[in-house]
Design a binder for these strands. Structure first.
Lengths: 194, 194
DNA sequence: GCCATTCTGGACTGAATGGTACATAATTCG
DNA sequence: CGAATTATGTACCATTCAGTCCAGAATGGC
């Protein structure tokens, strides 16, 4: 070994991810990434590969964090209250959070799903993982008697995965609390009722 | 007047819109637009203004078409059957349609909502218009007794607007009919029940 | 202290970008 | 027919882009 790194790769990846999240892949330039991370091109390339590699790692970072947050939030029963907490948290984030970023996974799905096979695979994996987290939590809740016997955890998990994406996309375009709470309210009723 | 246009502006705008829809704004180059429309740069600029102007006109075209389709499809009661028809149509389009384009409005919301005020305004207007179409159709259905007295057409319309965006976004990333039908099924149940 | 190795900054490159200029072609009106 | 006007195609421009290169700096091993 010789000269050691002068920066923290985890922190740098986090910064890079924030830029991709806020601006999108195409609209993010290498200069943006250098400025956000404080690194030079050389260091960026040596540590993370090219721009596309950096994107893939950013997606993974975001997906891992999101999955961990979902898992933790849904671990505390009852499921209805847990879901409401998660929905409220997202709504607060949309209203008060730093400007209109939406869901990074959703953004990538919208921007890249067509041509970028690698990014698409990560996006799908993240959505599938979230769906699985929902499904497990719903199945556990059903076993505890919190859901009707007719409830289908798989279908409900798919519905929630889609519903959250819709909520965050609509919220990105129109961050209006009343609108988002209407949506969340009906989503919750869907899960519990029937 | 002097030399007349050699092309049909409506057809050219339609072609341009398809490119923006498929590739996104940033990833679409002027050469792409010229190739798709068959026009030279001069003609494009003379007829539509610059790239950004062309985007705005593309959004309007897409939004108008979508609103007309929604209006027509929801005009035939009962509302449940009408919504199912629309959902099935979208699902068929996602599964069989030309490659993973998603909803152009949703794509624009994801890609541009942050920095592009003009595009954002069009996106919001389109979402609001669709919401109004849903609301009117739901209110009419409620008046016909097809929905419970407790049904809130405004909230349901917002839910559907968001739900459709979620469905199409998830479908873009993962065009799996079983998944999409699970989602659609629960959306429908939400509107009818409770 | 010195060499090998790794990291860092900035200059550089070739390609692609959005947009413009201009010469030419086609049409209408007098 | 001829002048005025509009449309078209192409060459062109400055800028920006992702990615490379290299000289120099900083460290560890000996």
């Amino acid at each position: 070994m010789a000269r050691p790194r002068e920066f923290d790769p985890d922190a740098a990846l986090d910064r890079a991810m924030q830029v991709f999240w806020a601006k999108g892949y195409e609209a993010t330039s290498l200069d943006d990434l250098c400025a956000a991370t404080g690194l030079s091109r050389s260091s960026l390339y040596a540590a993370f590969g090219d721009k596309h590699d950096l994107l893939l790692q950013s997606i993974d970072l975001y997906a891992d964090r999101g999955a961990a947050r979902f898992t933790a939030a849904l671990a505390i029963p009852p499921i209805q209250a847990a879901l409401r907490r998660v929905l409220d948290e997202f709504i607060d984030q949309i209203i008060a959070g730093p400007g209109r970023r939406g869901c990074f996974i959703g953004n990538c799905a919208a921007e890249l799903a067509r041509g970028d096979r690698d990014a698409l695979a990560r996006v799908r994996r993240s959505l599938a993982r979230n769906e699985a987290i929902f499904r497990d939590a719903l199945a556990a809740a059903k076993a505890r008697g919190e859901l009707p016997r007719s409830a289908d955890p798989t279908a409900l998990a798919r519905f929630l995965t889609s519903g959250f994406q819709g909520l965050r996309l609509v919220g990105k375009a129109n961050p209006d609390r009343a609108v988002l709470e209407d949506i969340a309210e009906i989503m919750l009723r869907c899960v519990g009722g029937d």
